[in-house]
């Protein structure tokens, strides 16, 4: 389909170039001028209602500002709380809650040097990477088999995987806990690395199935005729074309693992094996004492890696959501 489109678009481009060049010599300057002015006072409708400034402010800028404010305010709150001295934290009468006087790094110092926070960060990173890698490999095979091998009942398997994704973790953790105990991996990183794929694999499989579907079937048939085996088709043709899909599945998996809470809470007991979301909440809240400063510092630092990851791959991520393979 894409090739049809591009094939038909090239002559039209040539046509456009021709009309351009016919204007260029300026033999008929009057016509050229007319063309120019009509270009300026284009009375066509479409998006031009956005042109006047006051309208733009109200229809575009204002909603955008509200949106951005709603999204970013929690981060701002986290950031200022993390550097507020303790005496300012709840004293709204004497200090503005929206501003900091005499910022301090005490909370961050406490977090990094007097708690096991660095361990949590490392654990989260380690578990997220391992779980993501396992899930991606499994999902590639699953998605390829369901989407392209078309075995009997492949549709039902696809549906089954999707349904598995719908089982909430708060129910699934009970049988999983049993398995984790029996396998003897309770309170270790392995407990999380092996349980996270229960929700990552269905999700990534579903995403990759959609992506594989967008790759023309002829490419695979052509590779078959060219003498490639199924394995070679997967490695040399399909995967190189699925990189955007793999990246977005990877980012999603990584984020989901990074933020996972229930399994990390139930399967990990010792302080140095905890992940960031669980650690921050269980170790920095002592009965009814909330260490707000360190809590917020922990949350802020904990969210940075995901932000960085997203910002690097945002292009791939968007293209995999919107598009197919362009030939």
């Amino acid at each position: 389909m894409t090739s049809t489109h591009s094939a038909s678009s090239s002559p039209s481009r040539a046509g456009a170039a021709m009309t351009d060049s016919s204007h260029a010599p300026g033999a008929d300057t009057g016509a050229a001028k007319r063309a120019k002015t009509s270009g300026l006072t284009d009375d066509s409708a479409g998006m031009s209602y956005l042109d006047s400034l006051p309208r733009r402010l109200i229809t575009v800028m204002l909603p955008l500002l509200v949106f951005v404010f709603v999204l970013l305010f929690p981060f701002y709150w986290m950031a200022i709380t993390a550097i507020k001295p303790n005496y300012q934290l709840t004293d709204y009468a004497n200090y503005s809650p929206l501003w900091v006087v005499g910022p301090t790094l005490d909370h961050i110092k406490y977090l990094l040097f007097e708690t096991t926070y660095p361990y949590w960060l490392w654990n989260t990173l380690y578990v997220s990477f391992a779980a993501t890698a396992i899930s991606l490999v499994a999902s590639v095979f699953a998605a390829y088999a369901i989407e392209r091998l078309r075995f009997k009942g492949s549709r039902w398997v696809g549906l089954g995987i999707f349904l598995a994704y719908l089982v909430p973790p708060s129910i699934l953790f009970i049988p999983l806990a049993l398995m984790v105990f029996k396998l003897g991996i309770y309170d270790s990183k392995l407990a999380l690395i092996f349980t996270y794929p229960t929700f990552l694999v269905p999700f990534s499989t579903w995403l990759l199935m959609g992506y594989f579907r967008s790759i023309p079937y002829e490419l695979e048939e052509c590779a078959l005729v060219d003498g490639a085996s199924r394995w070679q088709i997967l490695i040399k043709v399909l995967l190189p074309l699925s990189i955007p899909g793999l990246i977005s599945a990877g980012i999603f998996s990584f984020t989901l693992s990074w933020n996972e809470f229930i399994y990390a809470l139930t399967f990990i007991q010792s302080s140095e094996n905890k992940t960031v979301p669980v650690g921050v909440l269980t170790e920095l809240v002592r009965s009814d004492v909330y260490e707000w400063g360190s809590l917020m510092a922990g949350a802020l630092i904990g969210s940075l890696p995901v932000v960085i990851l997203y910002s690097f791959f945002v292009d791939y991520y968007v293209s995999s959501m919107t598009g197919a393979v362009k030939e």
């Binding site: 090739s3 002829e218 362009k326 030939e327």
Partner: peptide, 20 residues
Amino acid sequence: VPPKERDIAMVFQNYALYPH
């Protein structure tokens, strides 16, 4: 006999060139 052992070459309607 599988396609790769038939010693044939095929040209597809949409060319099926490997984009990468």
